[in-house]
């Protein structure tokens, strides 16, 4: 959130927003609480006020720094997932962070050791295989996955789905879904991957889903639930939507743009 304070109103042209919106304070006001967007900023001439300019620079600095955070499965947030679900780590063919940024072709492919390890450690032909990828935000994985993964595994099991052993992929791009599909033969693969860090949050996670992903599949065969974070789609809602899509895939035996989420309840519930 933008921390800048807002002056009390002195206008005499009558209230636009109903009371108590008039006692606005930037951080909890009825009006600005409606959106994390930087609305009602005021201006200095045609430009930003100084406080706005500095807030933008500070948030950009934090987002830039967040890019270079390194996530370890020893992290206190992640370690319980190792104990409980046997989460383990592999890497794509992008061996370094620099390669990860510059070589999407490498980040879409598991390296040979990863294929061998996944093939050996993950049960094959399950209904649902979960993959966790760092993507462009380790902070997103650390913030969302510890809550999301147990909910997802529990809810999937309650629906009678067989679930594979989850795997963490370092330097991960979305296209890695294809190699995971080919390696495990899973019916549906869901990739929980850190989105590029924004100014408002560096903790936004995406779930990419594919039905029987295989070499050559593209985004046209994938479905996306984005903006999974505290100010966006909350974990229980994300799980509901993920499993809703899994059900659609199993019904239609396909995934992608021709399969749509059947309801818009997130609009009503995610506030």
């Amino acid at each position: 959130m933008n921390p800048e304070p807002v002056k009390p109103e002195a206008s005499n042209s009558g209230p636009l927003l109903p009371e108590p919106a008039d006692q606005l304070d930037r951080a909890g006001s009825p009006a600005t609480a409606l959106t994390p967007a930087r609305v009602l900023l005021g201006r200095a001439g045609s430009s930003y006020r100084t406080s706005t300019l500095l807030a933008l620079r500070a948030d950009h600095a934090a987002a830039r720094d967040a890019l270079h955070e390194h996530l370890s499965l020893d992290d206190p947030a992640m370690a319980p997932l190792v104990d409980r679900f046997g989460l383990f780590e592999v890497c794509t063919r992008a061996a370094t962070f620099a390669d990860h940024l510059a070589r999407p072709d490498l980040g879409r492919r598991l390296d040979p050791a990863a294929i061998e390890r996944i093939s050996a450690e993950c049960p094959h032909d399950v209904d649902l295989q979960v993959v966790i990828g760092d993507g462009l935000s380790s902070a997103a994985v650390r913030a969302q996955v510890p809550e999301l993964l147990p909910l997802l595994v529990g809810a999937a099991a309650a629906r009678g789905l067989s679930i594979g052993r989850p795997v963490f992929v370092r330097h991960c791009r979305v296209g890695v879904l294809n190699d995971v599909g080919d390696t495990t033969g899973a019916g549906v693969v869901v990739l929980l991957v850190g989105e590029r860090p924004g100014l408002a949050t560096a903790e936004s996670l995406s779930a990419y889903l594919a039905h029987r992903p295989t070499t050559g599949d593209t985004d046209a065969e994938r479905n996306l639930i984005s903006n999974i974070h505290a100010g966006g789609v909350r974990a229980p809602e994300a799980v509901r939507r993920i499993l809703g899509l899994v059900e659609q895939f199993r019904l239609h035996q396909r995934s992608g743009f021709e399969v749509r989420e059947s309801t818009s309840s997130s609009v009503a519930t995610a506030r």
């Binding site: 807002v6 002056k7 109103e9 919106a21």
Partner: peptide, 10 residues
């Protein structure tokens, strides 16, 4: 108005 907040809207 150029001040921040809902003055512009009002």
């Amino acid at each position: 108005p150029s001040e921040p907040g809902p003055a512009a809207l009002r």
